[in-house]
Design a protein around this nucleic acid. Structure first.
Lengths: 368, 368
DNA sequence: ATTAGCACTCTCACCCTAAGAGTGCCAACG
DNA sequence: CGTTGGCACTCTTAGGGTGAGAGTGCTAAT
């Protein structure tokens, strides 16, 4: 479920969960967050009373606000501005104040329909998922391909390409396809004149396919020692491809809707987003996120400074893992300013994660 | 070579080529462009004389500037600001004033080295190319995969994935790999209980591989009629995959360095980039660019309003096609503000295009 | 043709002020 | 005692005015 990430709490757990707030404080905090998310303008006591038909005076709201500020849930840009939720304030809101705007049936159907329109290729799915996420939350969306924690060999194909090159196409056990061009020079050296026609390639691939299904990189490497000729060389390549797939947890990232974020007033000066984009490109950020999300399961919300990376201190992430249980694992979610429409983003991310789960398990049938 | 794109010229061709400019006008225009590209600040007559050691007075420069403005090559933000190059001014600069800063040997070697570090997978190449372009021009880079104008079948592999799904992995004649999951329901209906073990899959693939190499989508569809059972179904899928590859000219776009552009003062308000990002995502923009670039060959520079798309009126593109001659074709280049360091960008794009050409032809051996 | 000089224009940074929003506190009220 | 109206106070923001500076265009002299 929804939950906090860590760790840096200098405030009591009970404050964070919002359990010891009075009913009034809860109402006020909720109103402040919701108003601020909509307007992006610090919200004052008077405006709150007016807009939310609170049945108390602005003075009362003021005192509640002061209490909330003392608790670290609200903050003050300057003396005479309204209040703004702090990261912790958003946290409490997400954790115990928010009423999720569940996706209505028609939205769900529309999304499902879009997926049914598309050819059954995983990359298309990912692109589409990112596009839907971005469009329906007006934030930036990020989707990574699902891949197994431990890469295992599935099936090899060696193809003659033109007359100069050979291409190794490898299907991993988790359904991902990786390829590598075999360098002609290396190949010739290794083969010492042995013919490399399609028939020979097929034979070598068949040898490997028969023997190596389900093995990991090191296991393949061990058995490859027993082979000779083209098959040995191919096995070497296979092993290295499988190992590569193992070490790189997130290799490709599909993003969409960065423009949405640029439109938000907090990123009006575009340079602010620069750091975020760089971090996203440098894939180790998402890589580190994988185990965290996987462990927690469901939708995880990471708000502002809860983010480990400095560059991400002004954005929030709403992410979920997806994939076959115990098998392939991918990430998907949205990124926006901390002033994010959580009640919309969270169910959308959740729905898309379950949808991708379905697609993967039904079309792929899990994984060894 | 470098050249203009079109077409909208309400000024004479000779003015555009800058041929009828006096030597002084040429010097001044060059200095204005180069100064403005560096400083992003409108440049005045006095500053020009000082910084570029022109051996004339500022008054002389002023009159030259006035002439250039009359020709539409410079413009005036307001009465008392310096001059700024117009799109046309940049055009003339690029066309006949610029001295290209050719990539020095060490840069070339460094780039080459980076490519040699990377595994021989085309996607990695593309990502790397984008990253190098972005880094070395401080602009945004865009790279699209090379694919044949006319998709032809190369090699098919059918793989059993888990026990529920079958995966078709198709190597096109141009070396690209596409895949499609075969929907279990459809498969079962089509096969009516025919077994779908790996051996059967291999047999079906072998049939198709033996017969269909080098064929286009429609050709495959025609021959597929003679097949039955699994092979017929597979041929159907192959045909549709090949046709898909035919219709979608640009399917995936690798970008990098968007942050670089956000840093430029002209895009300080990030929202300005929004439209550009959207156009880039909507792939038909690049798609339309493909034939234009291919016809012209070499590096094409498109400056500001020369751009067909309204959203791109404030950016320049420096792009080149790459690929095997007459075969696979891809695009690569950079996108930045019109105030772009053309003398740096153009040779870099050119070098990367030739490099990609080399990689493709040497490792892949051309294409049918 | 080039140049020095000069009047003119426009922006930009600065300061000042007034208006407005919002707070915090306090005393009064039910 | 929680709630409320009132009020003084603070701080931002927008607007207007000003002076400096940059840059131009023109003209007359070389």
């Amino acid at each position: 479920m929804v939950g906090e990430q860590s760790s840096h709490s200098d405030t009591t757990a009970s404050a964070r969960s919002g359990l010891d707030l009075t009913e009034r404080q809860r109402t006020v905090l909720r109103a402040v967050v919701e108003d601020y998310v909509l307007s992006a303008v610090p919200v004052g006591s008077r405006a709150l009373v007016d807009r939310y038909r609170l049945l108390v005076s602005s003075a009362t709201v003021r005192s509640a606000m002061a209490e909330l500020e003392a608790l670290g849930l609200l903050s003050h840009p300057h003396t005479s501005a309204g209040r703004v939720p702090s990261d912790l304030g958003y946290r409490v809101y997400v954790e115990s104040l928010m009423r999720e705007a569940s996706l209505d049936r028609s939205d769900q159907l529309m999304i499902r329909h879009q997926f049914s329109q598309v050819q059954l290729t995983s990359n298309e799915w990912l692109r589409l998922a990112a596009s839907i996420l971005a469009g329906s939350t007006r934030s930036a969306a990020v989707v990574t391909p699902a891949k197994a924690r431990r890469a295992r060999f599935g099936h090899l194909q060696l193809v003659e390409l033109g007359d100069q090159t050979r291409l190794a196409v490898l299907v991993l056990a988790d359904g991902n396809v990786v390829q590598r061009r075999l360098d002609r020079a290396v190949l010739e050296r290794a083969m010492a004149g042995e013919p490399l026609g399609q028939a020979h390639l097929d034979a070598a691939a068949a040898t490997i396919n028969a023997d190596f299904a389900g093995l990991t990189g090191p296991q393949i490497r061990r058995r490859a020692a027993k082979l000779t000729g083209l098959a040995a060389h191919a096995a070497e390549v296979v092993a290295s491809l499988v190992e590569d797939a193992d070490t790189v947890a997130v290799e490709e990232v599909f993003t969409d809707g960065i423009g949405n974020v640029l439109e938000q007033p907090e990123f009006a000066e575009g340079a602010k987003l620069r750091g975020v984009l760089e971090v996203l490109q440098r894939s180790d950020f998402l890589e580190q996120l994988v185990p965290v999300l996987a462990r927690r399961g469901g939708v995880t919300v990471i708000i502002g400074h809860e983010n480990a990376n400095d560059a991400m201190h002004e954005v929030s992430l709403v992410f979920a893992p997806y994939g076959a249980p115990g098998g392939a694992l991918g990430l998907l979610g949205v990124l926006g300013p901390t002033r994010m429409p959580y009640p919309r983003a969270i169910p959308t991310v959740r729905y898309l994660a379950t949808l991708m789960n379905e697609l993967i398990t039904s079309h792929h049938g899990g994984d060894a």
